[in-house]
Design a protein around this nucleic acid. Structure first.
Length: 284
DNA sequence: ACAGGCTCCTGCAGGC
DNA sequence: TGCCTGCAGGAGCCTG
């Protein structure tokens, strides 16, 4: 399931391939609701625009778009003003692929963008937990992830996020309005590396524990980005290539297996409705 | 205001 | 072998 490192990997891959390219035609094939605004409105909004840049914000992929221009003008559209955004949330099983129109279209393909370069951008999502949104910045505001960026937040700011909160630290890490981009895998992995039990009340963690947690989170996220993300179900990057960080998971989906540090069997429990994995000896 | 739980959706694993 | 059940989970929504 795509979390920050997977979304970052995809955003970088898409950016490298379609930055400066123009959307010639947009096709939206779903009648049900992976869309925040109607498929017709999104298609109309996207067509003719140049993709100025693609980046990640929390778990969202944001495609910054220029104004609608004719073909000859599009070639010099790379540095234009951002006038619209296409925001992609992958949910659990969403994939954003850059391919060519001749490649077979797989089932659950909900959107296809034909690019002037001959490439094609596809959004595929079997479980339909993903979301697509078009924003015309003349009518609306730019997209911002609701929570803080875990890779950029300072120690003091990080500690303030959890102050006075009674909920489990694991649940707090998953709350996107506090930190944007952390999901189940990296919550479990960072808590293990910080030696903190997932059920501890967020507000009761000491300052040193919170700082250990922040540093563990940064380390695990950066390391995962370098490995191209974790492929645990069907995650692939913009080229359809799997990541490798799942090979470095120390607790996630290792229930009953020995802890890599102390050999104690890894335990599983449910926190905030999510399966949660931890070492009862290493995490206090 | 805040926290916890339910729901959406499909593919796959496990059990009988 | 084949069917059925249950589980996976991000985030919006509802409830207490």
């Amino acid at each position: 399931m795509p979390e920050l490192p997977e979304v970052e990997t995809i955003a970088r891959g898409v950016n490298a391939r379609v930055r400066g390219d123009q959307i010639v035609e947009a096709w939206f094939g779903s009648h049900r609701e992976p869309f925040k605004n109607s498929p017709a409105r999104q298609a109309k909004g996207l067509e003719g625009r140049t993709i100025l840049e693609v980046h990640r914000a929390g778990k969202h992929i944001v495609c910054e778009l220029g104004s609608v221009v004719s073909g000859s003008q599009a070639a010099r559209g790379r540095d234009g003003q951002v006038e619209a955004e296409w925001i992609v949330h992958l949910g659990m099983t969403g994939r954003l692929l850059v391919t060519t129109p001749s490649n077979p279209v797989e089932v659950h393909t909900h959107a296809r963008l034909t690019m002037a370069s001959g490439r094609e951008v596809r959004f595929v999502d079997p479980r339909r937990f993903g979301r697509l949104e078009f924003r015309d910045l003349k009518k609306g505001r730019r997209f911002h992830a609701p929570g803080a960026e875990p890779l950029a937040i300072a120690a003091a700011e990080f500690a303030v996020l959890f102050r006075g909160r009674k909920l489990a630290i694991k649940a707090a890490l998953l709350n996107q309005t506090l930190l944007a981009g952390v999901g189940n895998i990296y919550a479990d992995e960072s808590l293990f590396r910080a030696g903190i039990r997932p059920r501890r009340a967020a507000g009761k963690l000491t300052r040193p524990e919170l700082e250990r947690l922040r540093l563990a989170l940064v380390e695990v996220l950066q390391r995962a980005i370098r490995r191209g993300g974790s492929s645990v179900s069907d995650y692939v990057d913009a080229d359809g290539v799997r990541g490798f960080f799942q090979l470095e998971h120390r607790v996630y989906q290792r229930t009953g297996e020995p802890c890599l540090v102390c050999r104690t069997p890894i335990r599983r429990l449910v926190v905030a409705g999510r399966s949660t994995h931890y070492c009862p000896k290493c995490q206090r």
